[in-house]
Write a protein that binds this DNA or RNA. Structure first.
Length: 830
RNA sequence: GCCAGAGUGAUGGAACUGGCAUACAUGACGGUCUCAAAAACCGUUGUCCGCGAGGACGUGUGGGUUCGAAUCCCACCUCUGGCACCA
């Protein structure tokens, strides 16, 4: 393809200049007009493709735009460098993870530079370097001090392929988030962060995040999964023990015809110690556990259970209710025991039908009386209470709280709230992560590493291939240490931390990345945070964003920061799709930016990426579209060049079939400024902003070809051409910064266009003297009429009725009504 | 199953608060320039009927509200994402 403008010379020139002039280096001493623009820091796993580029380009557009609006912009960048992908890649290539990570960082940095995206590089942070992970370990110690980091033995998610445990959030549909292997359960002693203590606050504060996408907030709320209900104690017959259950459906309590325990129920053995069939029951429960752990992810697993020979008394009606073990009851939620109401819960219904347990209706369908033996399925809607003693006749919705009141009064039960959210499992049996700063001493027990002794360095010479055990156990020099308390021999914790711990606080480190004594400068952090604009992929809607919110709240409570939400505004961009699939190396549909950049230039690739569609939506990449972007930039270049050389627009333009004069151009300039500004202020509507500038360029081409293409009075400084070109350059500056800088300089300006202020529009110039009014008959467009802007409704009405095209429609019928919408249309109803 | 979001030309997409549906771009077709091609520039391009003027239809489907609906309401279909035996 023939090059029509020298982007290959221009782009490196300006990239060098921006670096030299430190355009993107913020001064954080003053937080006046601060604007913290943050992109989720990337994983340095491989070279970036155009899909990744979208994220950085969007961020760069915002940063440059805000700069031109006179804000003090901070845009740092760093690397989320610990973690499995780096380690797995390293194992495959036989390289140490650090070597491969640092090499990837170099490649990616070069790519970012070539894209012309600007960052405050002196603030760069790399999470796998000791000067960073020292503070990740510090963060662990703070949580430990507050009792928010604890160790417990529990059934945890185990990925056999990665040979490590996973957090609940990292198990997707029963599969490992990273490698798609089937996750199994394993009993292990592991470190957890007590995120459940913050469940309510995380939920409540999500309401305050007005500038977050609704769907991200909804996803977080669902994940936290709050439900309100009542804890009920059912006395166990023939003992002084009770069986505690949690239910949200207190209205159905009189319909409980059996109780169900999870197969893992901890007190099961104790409960049935005097039962004859004890062994048989325990065996059956064990069998259910084995099957359920693997099949739990599958839908419609056959209900299974066994009666344990014991009964409880329903405190509401004194009835004797049998206790069963059932495979569908979860140990992790509620108390691991439920009251089962087959008439009004589909799972209980299926179970009761299978084992011929009675079904009793306690909520009747107001539309059709229910009979338990004729029900095809459970009735889960609202209705009228029956078979419930004093509550009969009450709407079930009302009974929920009335029965709860009654239970609290009679001390049968107590209101309680449960969450789906589990504590955050942070131990990993892998090499490439920050070591957990804990020492085990035979005499002193679990001892945290003193802050002064941080960082606990990750040893370099370790066989890091996973074997199901922490690789650090293989390093004697690391494991064997002295107890900080008694100074006797002790051993170190060999697990490393989940990388989501690293990324849960990095936005704070950017503020003072070189700080040696503290993780961040409190004063400056409090002035610069929360982040004004956070940009990243929606795949982090739960994991990273929830963890970061949690850590922020912990640090606030510990007095380290003054704010309790880290990110004021969040933008989640869509993916770039190629051939119907997400770009990935394994699918072989990756579009590499390098080739496109050498062929068309960075500005073209940027412009196309932004023009492809609304940035929050997924978009299909098309190489053809790139050419369109290039064509537009070439048109703009020729336009500006002709003005610079000849002080006119002397370009190849067609015959004057359409006419535009200087006055109209003037109006279009100001309309374009308004449109682009509104698009950027209201949201990230880059695609429509760009199309507005395209329209202005098209108009200038028409103007050039018009018979009356005289400029205003250039000699008196009233050149409309100059005004148009300069407005276009300013408006396009955030999108195509290199070309625009070059033309701005050639137009005779001395300083960078990013030091200029964003253009303002003149309200008086926006409106034309004459406007087109649409004339409708019965809501269908039948004609148009040109009228002065300030025409009265009366005049407009008669003008519309006189219109030739309209006459034939109204001559035969009677006019019933004329609706006039000023400045828009006239609708004649006949 | 539950909770979100989306469905508009051949394609990506536009349409502010209900007021000219399809801006902008891509593709296609025709033309100018050229020995030729590329580039550039100009024109046409929702579907159907009609030589034409013009008309009918048209924003997933069916209904409704309204002078007027892509936009609001009801029902349904399809796709995408999240959650899923959560008591």
């Amino acid at each position: 393809m023939k090059r029509s403008y020298p982007f290959d010379k221009i782009e490196p020139k300006w990239q060098k200049r921006w670096a030299k002039s430190k355009l993107f280096e913020a001064d954080t001493k003053s937080a006046k007009n601060k604007y913290y623009c943050l992109m989720m820091f990337p994983y340095p796993s491989a070279a970036l493709h155009v899909g990744h580029g979208r994220n950085y380009i969007i961020g760069d557009v915002i940063a440059r735009y805000k700069m031109m609006r006179g804000l003090n912009v901070l845009t740092p960048m760093g690397w989320d460098a610990f973690g499995l992908p780096a380690e797995n890649a390293a194992i495959k290539n036989g390289l140490h993870p650090r070597t491969s990570v640092l090499a990837n960082i170099e490649t990616m940095k070069k790519q970012l530079y070539r894209w012309g995206v600007g960052y405050d590089w002196p603030r760069e942070v790399t999470s796998c370097e000791p000067d960073y992970y020292k503070w990740t370990q510090w963060l662990f110690l703070k949580l430990y001090e507050k009792g928010l980091a604890y160790k417990k033995k529990a059934a945890v998610n185990w990925c056999p392929s990665c040979s490590t445990v996973l957090a609940n959030e990292q198990v997707v549909g029963g599969l490992c988030e990273r490698c798609d292997a089937q996750v199994t359960q394993k009993e292990l002693e592991q470190w957890f962060f007590k995120i459940t203590d913050y469940a309510q606050r995380l939920l409540d504060d999500s309401d305050k995040l007005n500038d977050w996408p609704q769907r991200v907030k909804i996803m977080q709320r669902n994940w936290i999964g709050r439900s309100e209900g009542v804890k009920i104690d059912f006395p166990i017959g023939g003992s002084d023990k009770v069986l505690r259950c949690f239910t949200t459906r207190t209205d159905t309590v009189c319909g409980a015809t059996f109780m169900a325990l999870a197969p893992e129920y901890s007190d099961l053995e104790d409960l049935i110690k005097d039962v004859k069939d004890k062994e048989k029951i325990l065996k059956a429960a064990q069998k259910m556990r084995d099957i359920s752990s693997q099949k739990r992810a599958e839908i419609d697993v056959e209900k299974q259970g066994i009666f344990i020979g014991k009964y409880v008394i329903n405190p509401m009606n004194g009835e004797k209710v049998p206790i069963w073990v059932a495979n569908y009851v979860l140990m992790e939620y509620g108390t691991g025991a439920i009251m089962a109401v087959p008439a009004h819960d589909q799972r209980d219904f299926e179970f009761a039908r299978k084992y011929s347990i009675p079904i009793r209706v306690v909520i009747d369908d107001p539309k059709k009386h229910l009979t338990s033996d004729q029900m095809p399925e459970a009735y889960t809607e609202e209705g009228v209470m029956i078979n419930s003693g004093q509550f009969n006749g009450m709407p079930s919705q009302e009974a929920i709280s009335r029965i709860a009141d009654y239970m609290e009064k009679k001390r049968i039960g107590k209101r309680a709230v449960h969450y789906r959210l589990r504590d955050w499992l942070i131990s990993r049996q892998r090499y490439w992560g920050a070591p957990i700063p804990i020492i085990y001493c035979d005499r002193c027990g679990t001892v945290p590493v003193p802050e002064k002794k941080l960082p606990v360095l990750l040893p370099k010479d370790v066989e890091f291939k996973p074997r199901g055990e922490s690789p650090l156990k293989g390093s004697k020099a690391f494991i064997e240490t002295k107890c900080p308390k008694c100074k006797k021999r002790a051993t170190r914790e060999a697990d490393t931390m989940d990388t989501f711990v690293d990324s849960s606080w990095y936005y704070l480190r950017y503020i003072s990345p070189k700080e040696k004594r503290v993780p961040f400068d409190k004063k400056i952090v409090n002035r610069w945070l929360p982040v004004d604009q956070y940009i990243g992929g929606v795949e982090h809607a739960i994991l990273h964003l929830l963890y970061s919110r949690f850590i922020t709240k912990v640090l606030k409570d510990a007095g380290w920061i003054d704010f309790d939400e880290p990110f004021a505004r969040l933008f989640t961009q869509g993916m770039i799709i190629k051939d119907g699939a997400k770009m990935s190396k394994s699918k072989g549909n990756v579009v590499s930016p390098e080739k496109l950049i050498s062929e068309y230039g960075t500005d073209t690739v940027r412009l196309y990426t932004l023009f492809i569609g609304p940035p929050e939506k997924d978009a299909e990449w098309s190489d053809r579209g790139v050419e369109g972007a290039y064509r537009f930039l070439s048109r703009l270049w020729r336009l500006a060049e002709s003005y610079i050389d000849k002080k006119n627009i002397d370009i190849q333009a067609g015959a004057a079939s359409k006419k535009i004069d200087a006055k109209v151009i003037r109006r279009r300039i100001h309309q374009t400024i308004k449109k682009v500004t509104d698009d950027l202020e209201k949201g990230f509507h880059f695609n429509t902003a760009i199309s507005a500038t395209m329209e202005l360029v098209n108009d200038l081409y028409i103007f050039a070809g018009s018979a009356d293409n005289r400029d205003l009075e250039p000699d008196k400084g009233k050149s409309v051409i100059k005004e148009a070109i300069e407005a276009l350059l300013l408006l396009l500056a955030p999108f195509v910064p290199h070309m625009v800088e070059e033309l701005w300089e050639r137009m005779g300006h001395k300083r960078s266009i990013f030091k200029e202020t964003w253009p303002n529009y003149d309200l008086d110039l926006l409106q034309a003297d004459e406007i087109t009014i649409v004339i409708q008959i019965n809501g269908k467009v039948r004609g148009k009429v040109e009228v002065p802007i300030d025409i009265s409704d009366e005049e407009l009405r008669s003008k519309a009725l006189e219109e030739k095209a309209i006459a034939k429609w109204i001559s035969q019928s009677q006019i019933r009504k004329v609706i006039i919408i000023p400045k828009r249309l006239v609708n004649i109803v006949v």
